[in-house]
Amino acid sequence: MSMAVKCVELCKTYRQGDAEIKALDHLSLEIENGGFVCLSSPSGGGKTTLLNTIGGLDKPDSGEVWIAGKRIDQSSKSELAELRLRQIGFVFQAYNLIPVLSAQENVEFVMQLQGVGDAERGEKSQEVLKEVGLVGLENRRPAEMSGGQQQRVAVARAVVSRPALVLADEPTANLDSKAADSLMDLFTELNERHGTTFIIATHDQRVMAHVPRLVKMLDGRIVDDIQQQAN
């Protein structure tokens, strides 16, 4: 069976003055299509670095990254951009919304790049904003929203064009437990209905309890890989 994501012996070292920080240390990982995986580690364990590497935003020093059967760690920037545009949805730890655009425009931006027509864009963005519970806030700019609201816009933007793979970095960090639960319900639903593969980096115990597979990291290495019973 073809893997949604396959990482082979990934290494990434940051130099901070004299000290070398191994953000990824010979890390190998396979996630099948339709997988729902949670990455957890203490802060600085390398979760963000791993997600960025999988999404082609960052190049590993060595090792291989395969997405949907295609090796991407040597691809050009244009090819990577195309890959992200068509197949990957990102939820960033720092939201990374475009400050000059409203919530709805932020959500529609990716579809605009994809060349989706006006009417379809409006419809889809309305729908997904409803799913994340942001009805009535469509015209707010990021600066006019709370952290949790911005986070949900970021989630809406990541899932709106139904990518095959969603990479979410701390998607529930700023949400209360009710909002976090409904977000996880949304992810689960997308996972079950569309077979979307999810990789979620989190500290959040509730999220970890929620997922079928939990990968624990420490200092750039995988220290535990647990298959859990869904609850």
């Binding site: 244009s78 990102f90 931006f109």
Partner: peptide, 15 residues
């Protein structure tokens, strides 16, 4: 720069 980084991470080609 940050905005450009964002739109590139969302899949806009550098060209």
């Amino acid at each position: 720069t940050r905005e450009f980084g964002i739109v590139m991470s969302l899949g806009m080609k550098p060209g």
